[in-house]
C-alpha cells in the first residue's frame, strides 16, 4: 500500500470512527431524560452500539499510524482539528424531534454506506461492515418509526419534526462530498462512490417523508468542512467534557 493510500484509508477510518463516537456521546445525553423509560433504554442502546462501533474502527485506524495508537488514545487525546466526524453528529442534542431527525438522516446514510462497504476490497472493513449494516438498519427503523409517530401524532409533534428537518437539512450534503482521499479509495475499491449513495439516500428519506407528510426541503446553504477537520463551535465543548479525565491525569490508566 502506498503512503498516500494508507493516509487516505486512515482518514476514512477516522471519519467512520469519529462519526460513531460523537453520535454515541450525543445519544448518551438522553440518559434519564427521555420522554418515557422505554425510550431511555432504547436510546442508551443506540449509544452503546455507536460507542462499540467507534472502538473497533478507531482501533483499526490506530494500526494505520506509523506508531500504533490505541482506540482510547485516538478518542481521548486528539483535538478539534484532528476530528473528522460530520458536523451534524456534533450539533447539540436539541429536543426529541431533533434527535430523531438527526438519527434518521445519519442512520439512513450509514445503512447505505456499510452495505456498500460489505463489498470493500479491504477485508477488515468488509467483515466489520456485515455487522455494522445490521445495526444501522435497526437504527434507521427506530428513527423511521418515530417519524411516523411524530409526523402523524399531534400538530405539535408534526411541527417540531418539520422544524428539525429544516434545521438539519443544511448539514446533509456534506455526507456525500468526494474529497481526494475518497477518490483514491474509490479507485482501489476500498470505499464506495458517495455520489451514488446520495441518490439512494434521497430515495430512502423520500419514502419515509411520503408516509409521514413531510417534504424534502429546498436546497439552500450547505455547511461543509469536516473532511478538513473544520468543525462547528460545538465540538470543542463536547471533547472538553469527554476527554476531561484523560487530559487531567495523563499518566493514569483507568
Amino acid at each position: 500500500m502506498t503512503m498516500e493510500l494508507k493516509e487516505a484509508l486512515q482518514k476514512f477510518l477516522l471519519r467512520l470512527g469519529d462519526n460513531a463516537l460523537i453520535q454515541g456521546q450525543r445519544l448518551s445525553e438522553w440518559c434519564s431524560r427521555a420522554p418515557m423509560l422505554e425510550e431511555d433504554i432504547a436510546l442508551s442502546n443506540l449509544a452503546l452500539d455507536h460507542i462499540g462501533r467507534a472502538q473497533v474502527l478507531l482501533d483499526y485506524a490506530g494500526h494505520t499510524f506509523g506508531e500504533i495508537k490505541t482506540a482510547d488514545e485516538l478518542a481521548f487525546r486528539r483535538s478539534e482539528r484532528e476530528y473528522y466526524n460530520f458536523l451534524m453528529a456534533e450539533l447539540p442534542t436539541g429536543n426529541f424531534a431533533f434527535t430523531i431527525a438527526k438519527q434518521l438522516f445519519l442512520s439512513a446514510y450509514e445503512d447505505l454506506l456499510y452495505e456498500a462497504l460489505c463489498e470493500s476490497t479491504d477485508t477488515h472493513l468488509s467483515a466489520f461492515s456485515l455487522k455494522a449494516v445490521k445495526e444501522a438498519r435497526y437504527h434507521f427503523s427506530h428513527a423511521a418509526d418515530w417519524c411516523m409517530r411524530l409526523g402523524l401524532g399531534t400538530a405539535e409533534s408534526h411541527d417540531k419534526m418539520v422544524d428539525a428537518i429544516h434545521d438539519l437539512w443544511a448539514y446533509t450534503h456534506e455526507f456525500f462530498e468526494m474529497s481526494d482521499c475518497d477518490l483514491l479509495l474509490l479507485q482501489h475499491g476500498i470505499a464506495p462512490d458517495q455520489e451514488k449513495l446520495k441518490k439512494n439516500w434521497l430515495d430512502k428519506i423520500g419514502k419515509v417523508f411520503m408516509r409521514t407528510g413531510f417534504s424534502i426541503p429546498q436546497d439552500t446553504y450547505q455547511h461543509r468542512g469536516s473532511r478538513q477537520g473544520i468543525h462547528t463551535e460545538h465540538l470543542g465543548h463536547l471533547l472538553c467534557e469527554m476527554q476531561y479525565l484523560q487530559r487531567s491525569y495523563p499518566d493514569a490508566s483507568w
Binding site: 420522554p35 425510550e39 426529541f96 409517530r149 401524532g153 399531534t154 405539535e156 409533534s157
Partner: peptide, 13 residues
Amino acid sequence: EEGKWVREAADAY
C-alpha cells in the same frame, strides 16, 4: 414534563 408532547404524539398515533 419535557417529554409530554412526545407521549401525547405516540398516544394519538
